Simulated scan of single mutants.
Amino acid sequence: MGITKLSDLIRSEAPRAIAYKDISDYSGKTVAVDTSIVLYQFRTAIPKIHNRNGVNLSPLTGLFFRTLRFLEHDIKPVFVFDGTPPEQKRNELERRAKLTGQSTSYPPSSVSTQIHDCRELLQLMGVPYIQAPGDGEALCAQLVKTGKVDAVASEDMDTMAFGSDLLLRQLNASKDRSHVSVSAPVCWAVPSLQFVDLCILLGCDYCDKIPGLGPKRALVLIQKHKTIEEAVLHINRQTHPVPLNWRYRDARRLFSEAPQGTVPELVWNEPDEQGIVNFLCHRKHVKEERVRGRMERFRQTLKERRKEREEMSSAGEGKQTSIKDFFRVTRKREAPEVSESSSSKRAKCQ
């Protein structure tokens, strides 16, 4: 679910925080990818592709194609996997599992076969991955705050509550669509703890929300009264009943004191094409012509881009990019984006 209607609130109340860009604008950047959201998208938003053994290959093949798309645009992805989720997130995890037709247990008893497969595929593609101690969104935010990566790619807004300065949404959209960058520092002039309290009032994965309390009213309450404790003293309990045993303090702690993971050295290598073919085609029974064809297009794209860079360099057009270039607005879009809760359900293999 992420943070309920946070993207809508930012769009209406802090439009300067949003930029619509092309994927090529992130060339040369390092991006932490919230892997659980990527796999969730492929499980729910595209037709299931089963191999001869009845295994759903959509998440695995989707990860293959999406990773190549990053690499051919000179984006360095770092895939972050969830660890053991906090108990407060159990209800949300059970809801997601039900939507995808999967069984779930809390805490997870073991790493799934699908996760093992995804890690093996990423190794063959030469792309690093990190195991988070808890929620992957928290470690993604940590990577941004410590300067290990430039931004986080995710459809969930949780990473902003965890402290990420830059969130990339719809980064994997098709060529005729823009990608949305959301910059936390220019949303509102409120300290980080007040922003966390706003996210809790809006609705998050870790506790219930106050029924009937809309996003604009929540923003006004936090801007005026600073904390949840003070804000609830100025709401109508008849129309907005505060939940019994409301665990907002636990949610605040989870956002503000998320466990810090150990970040290994991040290294990218050339994809092992034959290893990829052996894994996807011979072991998982994906059609070999499909994999070989995509790898050939990948090589041709890299060759063309390398030639373009050489021509620009010889013409003296090369320049060092800055974070301002990274976040510069390149084009605007009139049509409003769908709400966050529906976007992560309807996101497609793009």
Rank of each mutant, 00 (worst) to 15 (best):
M157V: 02
S112E: 07
H116D: 15
R95I: 09
R52N: 11
V220R: 09
H234W: 07
G126M: 12
V220M: 08
I49T: 05
K145T: 01
H225R: 10
A153I: 02
F298S: 06
I323L: 10
I222P: 02
V291P: 02
F326Y: 15
L71S: 04
R96K: 14
Q114L: 15
D82N: 15
W188Q: 11
I200N: 03
I200P: 00
R297D: 14
K345A: 07
R252W: 10
G62D: 04
L57V: 00
K209R: 14
D158W: 00
H50Y: 09
L9K: 07
I49M: 12
T146D: 15
S112G: 02
Q223A: 09
L280R: 04
S314N: 13
E337T: 02
I37G: 00
I18N: 01
S341N: 08
G2W: 04
S174L: 05
T159P: 06
K29A: 13
F79Q: 05
E72M: 10
L63W: 14
L213R: 08
S103I: 00
F79E: 06
M160R: 09
E334V: 08
D22E: 12
F326M: 13
G261E: 13
F162L: 07
T239M: 11
M157P: 00
E317D: 12
G126K: 11
A138I: 03
A184E: 11
L171M: 15
N245R: 14
A218E: 06
H285C: 05
C118M: 10
F326H: 14
A218M: 11
N236M: 06
P185W: 12
D74L: 08
F255C: 06
W188P: 04
E155D: 07
T239R: 15
K319E: 08
D150V: 00
